[in-house]
Amino acid sequence: MAFELNGRTYETDEEGYLADLSEWNREVAGYMATEDDCDLSENHWEVINFLREYYEEYQIAPAVRVLTKAIGKKLGKDKGNSKYLYELFPYGPAKQACKYAGLPKPTGCV
């Protein structure tokens, strides 16, 4: 599968995850979110940027409970809980945010 954006073609897997992590840019994230009827706010970007940094450091997309705990540690307890993260990413914080961040689906997600 693939989509077109600003004259470029981006390959994805069958669930819409970007095939090549290095092709990611902010417009790609914005496009994917629009497709899901989601407007990216600063709060969304905080999580997306966090995920990209996590992947850069550990070469994996974290499981949702690891993400929740790590967000809490970095951005504060009011953000490090499932309620907050599910409000931002109703399709599942790890799954949906990883997709916008251009990462593969989190290890262990089915």
Binding site: E57, Y58, Q59, I60, P62, A63, V66, K69
Partner: peptide
């Protein structure tokens, strides 16, 4: 190849 050695550092988070 993919260098997966950094992933061992994530084990503590898990």
């Amino acid at each position: 190849m993919k260098n997966f050695s950094p992933t061992y550092r994530a084990l503590g988070d898990y």
